Amino acid sequence: MATVGFSDTNMTRICYLLMSYALLVAVTAHETPQQVVTRYNNYKAICDGMGYENVRCKDPIAFQSSLTKQLENLKNQETVIFDKVSLNEGKAYDNVAGVVTAPLDGIYSFTWTTLTKPGKYFVTEIVLNGKTVTLNHTDGRGHDGNPMSTSHANIKMKKGDKVWIRTHGTYGQFAHPNWCFFSGSKL
Rank of each mutant, 00 (worst) to 15 (best):
R13F: 06
I14R: 03
I14T: 10
C15M: 05
Y16C: 12
Y16I: 10
L17P: 01
M19Q: 15
Y21F: 14
A22V: 02
A22R: 03
L24W: 04
L24G: 14
V25I: 07
V25S: 04
A26R: 07
V27W: 11
A29G: 13
A29L: 12
A29T: 13
H30Y: 11
H30I: 13
H30P: 02
E31V: 12
E31H: 09
E31M: 13
T32N: 04
T32R: 01
P33Q: 02
P33G: 01
Q35K: 05
T38F: 11
R39V: 05
Y40N: 05
N41D: 15
N41K: 11
N42E: 13
N42L: 14
Y43M: 07
C47A: 08
D48V: 04
G49L: 08
M50K: 06
M50P: 00
Y52N: 10
N54Y: 13
R56A: 13
C57Q: 13
C57Y: 13
K58V: 12
K58T: 15
D59K: 14
P60T: 08
I61F: 02
A62D: 12
A62Q: 13
A62T: 03
F63L: 05
F63K: 11
F63C: 12
S65T: 12
S66I: 14
T68D: 15
L71C: 05
E72N: 06
N73E: 13
K75F: 10
N76L: 09
Q77L: 14
I81V: 15
I81E: 09
I81W: 05
F82V: 04
N88A: 11
N88K: 15
N88Q: 13
Y93L: 07
Y93N: 05
Y93G: 07
Y93A: 01
D94A: 03
D94R: 04
V96F: 11
V96W: 08
G98P: 00
V100M: 15
V100Y: 10
P103I: 07
L104E: 11
G106V: 05
I107P: 02
Y108S: 00
S109W: 02
F110V: 05
W112V: 04
T113R: 08
T114F: 07
T114L: 04
T114R: 04
T114K: 03
L115V: 14
K117R: 06
G119A: 01
K120T: 06
Y121I: 07
Y121R: 06
F122T: 06
E125C: 08
I126L: 01
I126C: 04
L128I: 10
N129V: 10
K131W: 09
T132F: 09
T132Q: 12
T134C: 03
L135H: 08
H137S: 06
H137V: 13
T138Q: 04
G140V: 00
